[in-house]
Design a protein around this nucleic acid. Structure first.
Lengths: 126, 126
DNA sequence: GACATCGTTCTACACCTGTAGTAGCATAAA
DNA sequence: TTTATGCTACTACAGGTGTAGAACGATGTC
């Protein structure tokens, strides 16, 4: 199985793939956040490393590779959140929520939204 | 200001300092989770790096150093959670809660606890 | 056909982390 | 006083990441 702990740069790159479905090195480079002014080779390097780690696959199209993610944003979120919960909240996700709520990380509007969420979910999570 | 993004090992080490208030290298090593069977020098190395990064301070006591954390668990949680929210949930903490709720990361019991939390917090977060 | 381009792979390098051995100094023990 | 111990600092090394230049092959252009 692929690594699903991604760094910020890796995330930015894979995010492009998520939104495009698939993309070449040049396309990825062009669609990275403007704040990332990276050389094409840099993007290529990161992409091949990600391929080695099975985070993305690639297929040859003419003379260039087209990259495609092998993990969904969902999976990455799940795994990274789980990891954080594991290392910071003794594996207790409710403790994370508690932290968010009692720490003013959530503003009033957010609280409303969360309440609504819980309402919708009243029947119990899947 | 100190780094507040800590790795797992760094967390385990600082956690000892949190629970002890302060501790020597040997004490830290002895109180690490049993799964971490590290050489004293390893712990010493990590601690000096953490000192360089202002995560801990130390004072000389006789011929040994006593280390003390300069950040609270609270601060670390805050900063690390904020970071995760920033990189995975576009900075929206409610999106993280939504993820937790709709993703069965929270079990029924957890949901109850979260609801209770929100109840308590009815008046609006600090 | 010669030259500029594009795209890929290789190589490189700095920096961080995990991990620990070795050396050196100070102190306690014999 | 010689020796063993304890503790620190230095050095080292592998593996990951961010970053990119150089080399090389294919292709498009005059």
């Amino acid at each position: 199985m692929p690594r699903t702990q991604l760094t910020d740069l890796q995330l930015d790159i894979v995010r492009v793939l998520w939104s495009e479905g698939e993309a070449t090195v040049a396309e990825v480079r062009d669609q990275l956040p403007a704040s990332r002014d990276l050389a094409t080779t840099t993007v290529a390097t990161v992409l091949s490393r990600l391929e080695k780690q099975n985070v993305v696959t690639r297929r040859l199209d003419g003379r260039q590779y087209v990259y495609r993610p092998t993990v969904t944003e969902h999976q990455v979120r799940r795994s990274m959140v789980a990891d954080l919960v594991g290392s910071l909240f003794e594996g207790d996700p409710a403790a994370l929520v508690s932290h968010l709520v009692s720490d003013a990380e959530l503003e009033d509007g957010d609280l409303e939204r969360v309440r609504a969420l819980l309402q919708t979910d009243e029947g119990g999570a899947a």
